[in-house]
């Protein structure tokens, strides 16, 4: 079952040569169960830090994070979290099927978690039939990332976290992968949170876009996307899409500075 996500005043600071560096400053967001959220911001705004805190890869210095009603560490121990890294992070010695089955092998049979999917079912879902026994090195970047998405879904996670999953792919492949990801998400009934630095991608994919600003990293604005589902590529040339993109853009470049906002509005808009 998908779970909602509540982040309240989450902060993260590091000590660097005796100086305190604030990576994330009181970030708050909430995402309903089964919803699709996107975090967008420039490099170094702490968006990956936030995502990693939700996955319990790093611990927040202050604030609270709840997946459903549980702490991230509890959710992680229950294998309720799926994570897709920026690079596919496949084990090079395991075939496609073995890589997808890896979480099953890690968790073992003793786990209480019953909601599981078979690797073959997922291979079909990510359209990799015929490549079951291929090694990662024999696949293209897009195919590798599909394997990694399938792997993230094999334990039927309650929440799926995606850290710039298509950042390394070319624009055309990326567009196609986005469409596929939306289809997979719709079929998998899971909450999804995507980190990206592409405005188009964030608006196209998400119900809510959380806009972050750097130094110190904080969520500066939440932009809701009033596009219906299922999303289609045609929507990317609609007025709603265009307006939403502009609102995100204004959020990114700062609405206080009038000149900057003007500049942003005057910049070439979506090319599609």
């Amino acid at each position: 079952m998908p779970k909602d996500l509540t982040v309240k005043d989450a902060s993260k600071w590091f000590d660097s040569r005796g100086q305190q560096v604030i990576a994330l400053d009181r970030a708050s967001l909430s995402l309903p169960a089964g919803g699709f959220g996107a975090i967008i911001g420039p490099s170094g705004c702490g968006k990956s830090t936030l995502l990693r805190m939700v996955a319990d890869i790093i611990a927040p210095s202050a604030g609270s994070i709840l997946v459903g009603n549980e702490k991230p560490s509890t959710a992680r121990l229950e294998h309720a979290i799926g994570f897709v890294f920026q690079s596919a992070t496949l084990l090079p010695w395991r075939t496609v099927r073995e890589n997808i089955a890896l979480p099953l092998a890690i968790v073992g049979r003793k786990s209480k978690r019953v909601a599981r999917r078979t690797p073959d079912e997922l291979i079909e879902l990510v359209s990799l039939q015929g490549f079951e026994d291929a090694l990662p090195a024999q696949l293209s970047g897009g195919m590798q990332q599909r394997v990694s998405i399938a792997r993230a879904l094999v334990l039927a996670p309650d929440i799926l976290l995606l850290d710039e999953p298509f950042g390394a792919l070319d624009e055309i492949t990326r567009q196609r992968m986005n469409l596929e990801l939306l289809r997979i998400w719709a079929e998998s009934s899971t909450t999804a949170l995507l980190v990206t630095h592409s405005i188009d991608e964030a608006v196209f994919m998400a119900d809510s876009v959380f806009v972050m600003s750097p130094r110190p990293g904080r969520i500066s604005q939440v932009v809701d996307v009033p596009l219906p589902r299922p999303r289609t590529l045609q929507m990317m040339s609609s007025k709603i899409f265009f307006d939403t993109v502009n609102r995100v853009r204004e959020g990114l470049y700062g609405i206080d500075a009038q000149g900057t906002a003007d500049l942003a509005a005057g910049a070439p808009a979506v090319v599609q």
């Binding site: 990693r52 996955a55 319990d56 890869i57 992680r76 121990l77 294998h79 979290i81 994570f83 890294f85 690079s87 992070t89 084990l91 979480p103 890690i106 968790v107 334990l155």
Partner: peptide
């Protein structure tokens, strides 16, 4: 990255 993956799956 791989280690973080294994961590996520505890």
């Amino acid at each position: 990255n791989h280690m973080e993956l294994f961590h996520v799956y505890s």
